[in-house]
């Protein structure tokens, strides 16, 4: 898998005429209609939009730049990047699961069913699955699990078995268990509230997956600590992996260079744009944040 992503991580700068077949659908700024918008718990909301193509053609790991509504208190000026939770091309649906944390997401949380909002996308490079992989392990925490749910479904659609390690503070904040269960994933829930989310325990689970031949590839999102753990084990056990990263953004299209992160590439530190060269990157090159 480590090899297969190389084509997709070539930036537009480096490849003026890339192989179009491997690239995702070109982005467009479209108007979506809110068909559902509910609280899942005290912090997380689930937003379902009906939107024209290319939005529903988004792939696991890609994201959209959302124009967040203004409220009396919050007036987000820039758009907010939001990773895909589900795309349903047949019904023209895109879904997001987000945590309400600041000006942008509070504005977003105010939008009512039936209202419209602009979404630019699909953007960025999504997850890749090596055609030779038979089983993968996804490890996510908090809202990062939402990014991994469509990856698990993509894997299942290709006959790839999934082990999903879902980390959260409490049982109420474990996201997307039903999504992972529906595709027959082996699910391990680890929690802060009972101590099972401790890295030593997660390491034990990951090592067991590898020992049982259930880890042809690692995927992670949502936790610096878990990323470092998975990266270390991936190196030790020669298991390739990918990580979906976040960064503050403005344009989402690779133009403004606001969203760079550093990567360790062959001993050098290289800054890459999360929006256009990611948000999914090789796990072995990621650096802690």
């Amino acid at each position: 898998m480590g090899q297969t992503i190389s084509l997709q991580t070539v930036s537009p700068d480096d490849a003026p005429s890339p192989a179009a077949a491997v690239l995702p659908a070109p982005a467009a700024d479209v108007l979506g209609v809110v068909v559902s918008h509910v609280w899942l718990n005290d912090e997380y909301r689930h937003l379902v939009l009906e939107a024209p193509e290319p939005a529903p053609l988004a792939r696991a790991g890609q994201f959209f730049n959302l124009e967040c509504p203004h409220t009396a208190e919050d007036k987000p000026y820039l758009r907010r990047p939001m990773s895909l939770y589900r795309a349903d091309p047949a019904n023209g649906i895109v879904e997001f699961l987000y945590k309400v944390t600041g000006v942008g997401t509070r504005g977003l949380a105010s939008i009512k069913v039936g209202r419209t909002m602009r979404l630019l996308g699909p953007l960025g490079v999504g997850f890749s699955i090596d055609p030779a992989a038979r089983s993968i392990v996804v490890l996510g925490r908090g809202v990062g699990l939402a990014t991994l749910a469509p990856l698990a479904e993509l894997a299942a659609s290709r006959g790839v078995a999934v082990t999903a390690i879902l980390s959260a503070r409490t049982p109420a904040t474990v996201m997307s268990v039903d999504r992972f269960a529906a595709i027959g994933a082996r699910i391990e829930i680890v929690l802060d509230s009972d101590g099972s989310s401790d890295p030593a325990n997660v390491e034990r689970i990951l090592r067991a997956c590898a020992a049982e031949g259930r880890a042809d590839a690692f995927y992670t999102c949502g936790s610096n600590r878990l990323m470092l753990l998975m990266q270390r084990l991936g190196r030790e056990l020669s298991i390739p992996g990918e990580v979906a990263l976040e960064q503050q953004m403005a344009c989402g299209l690779g133009m403004c260079f606001c969203c760079v992160r550093n990567f360790s590439v062959g001993g050098d530190i290289e800054a890459r744009r999360v929006c256009s060269e990611g948000p999914v990157f090789r796990l072995d090159e990621a650096m802690p944040w």
Binding site: C251, M255, C256
Partner: peptide
């Protein structure tokens, strides 16, 4: 300058 690049071409 600085707010434009190849990435805007699809839009």
């Amino acid at each position: 300058s600085g707010t434009f690049a190849e990435g805007l071409a699809p839009v």
